[in-house]
C-alpha cells in the first residue's frame, strides 16, 4: 500500500485517470433535490457536453465542481485528488486552474472590458498592467472583438458581446480546465460557429479539459467529444457526442429533436 500523496502523484501522471471524476454527487436546496447522485468522468484533453432541460441542475453541477456550492454528498476528484477533503489554500490552487464562463456572463460592471478579461492575470500578479492589457486585446481579438471594445464598460455591450467577453475572460489565463455555461446562447449562428471553433481550439492546442453546457445540438456535436444528459438530477445517458441525434435513448431523442411527446413531461399544468 503506497501512501496517499505518492498514490495521487502516480495518478496525476497517468493519462487513464480522469481529469474530473464525480461520484454520487448530491445537492439539495431545502427539500428539493437538484443533483441526485451524479457519476461522471471527464478524461484529460477531452470535452464533455452536458445537455438537459431548464432547471435540471446543470449550472449547479458546474458550481459544485468549482467549489462555489458545497455538495451534500459524494466526491469530486480533480487529477485523482478529492478536492472536497482539501484545505482552503490547496483548493484555491486547484480552482486557479479552472476557467469559467458564467451563464449570464457575470462581467464586473465596475471595470472596463479589458480589465475584466485580464482580471485573473492581474489578480495572480502574472503580468504587469501593460502586459495584461496587451494580452487582453489578443484574447478579445480571438473572440472577434476589436481592441477598442476593451475600453468600453460591460453595460455598453450587447448580450452576445458580453458573452464573448466572458469567454475571453475564462480563457485568458490559459487554464487547464474550462467550464462553459451555455457559451453560444444569444449569439448569431455564424458567431456561434466561431465560438465553437475557439472552444475546440482551446481544448486541442492548450490540451485543456472542458465541460460545456449547451442547448444547441449543432454546437454540442461541434465541441463535444462525449455528451451526457441530465434529467431530474441524474445522468440518464452518456455517449459519444456524435451519437447525440441517434442515441437510441428515448429521453435524449425527445430532447435533441425537440419533440413535445415523449418520456419527458413538461410540468406546465399544476
Amino acid at each position: 500500500m503506497t501512501s496517499g500523496s505518492e498514490q495521487s502523484e502516480r495518478e496525476r501522471s497517468n493519462k487513464d485517470v480522469p481529469k474530473i471524476r464525480l461520484r454520487g454527487l448530491t445537492k439539495r436546496f431545502g427539500d428539493k433535490v437538484v443533483l441526485d447522485g451524479i457519476d461522471l468522468d471527464v478524461m484529460p484533453g477531452t470535452s464533455m457536453v452536458v445537455i438537459g432541460g431548464s432547471g435540471s441542475g446543470k449550472s449547479v453541477l458546474l458550481k459544485c465542481i468549482l467549489g462555489l456550492i458545497a455538495p451534500d454528498e459524494g466526491t469530486i476528484e480533480i487529477d485523482g485528488t478529492n478536492v472536497l477533503a482539501l484545505d482552503r489554500a490547496r483548493r484555491e490552487t486547484i480552482r486557479a486552474q479552472i476557467g469559467m464562463l458564467f451563464q449570464n456572463g457575470a462581467l464586473f460592471d465596475s471595470l472596463p472590458v479589458w480589465e475584466n478579461v485580464a482580471f485573473g492575470l492581474l489578480a495572480r500578479r502574472l503580468a504587469s498592467r501593460a502586459d495584461a492589457k496587451a494580452r487582453a486585446e489578443t484574447v478579445l481579438a480571438q473572440v472577434g472583438l476589436a481592441p477598442s471594445v476593451g475600453e468600453l464598460w460591460p453595460a455598453e455591450l450587447s448580450g452576445g458581446m458580453q458573452k464573448r467577453v466572458g469567454l475571453a475572460r475564462a480563457i485568458a489565463a490559459r487554464p487547464e480546465v474550462l467550464f462553459f455555461d451555455e457559451p453560444t446562447t444569444g449569439l448569431d449562428p455564424i458567431m456561434g460557429a466561431v465560438i465553437d471553433g475557439l472552444i475546440v481550439d482551446c481544448v486541442k492546442t492548450l490540451g485543456s479539459t472542458a465541460i460545456a453546457i449547451t442547448h444547441d445540438m449543432l454546437s454540442a456535436r461541434r465541441i463535444g467529444d462525449r455528451a451526457a444528459m441530465l434529467f431530474k438530477g441524474r445522468i440518464v445517458w452518456q455517449g459519444a457526442a456524435s451519437e447525440l441525434m441517434e442515441s437510441g435513448n428515448a429521453m435524449v431523442d425527445q430532447f435533441t429533436h425537440g419533440r413535445r411527446e415523449g418520456p419527458i413531461q413538461m410540468e406546465l399544468r399544476k
Partner: peptide, 20 residues
C-alpha cells in the same frame, strides 16, 4: 446595492473563480 447586484448576477462567484 452594488455588492448585492454583484451577488445576484454571479459576479461574486466570478471573483472567486479568478483567484480573488
Amino acid at each position: 446595492a452594488e455588492i448585492g447586484t454583484m451577488r445576484v448576477t454571479d459576479q461574486v462567484d466570478a471573483l472567486t473563480t479568478l483567484s480573488t
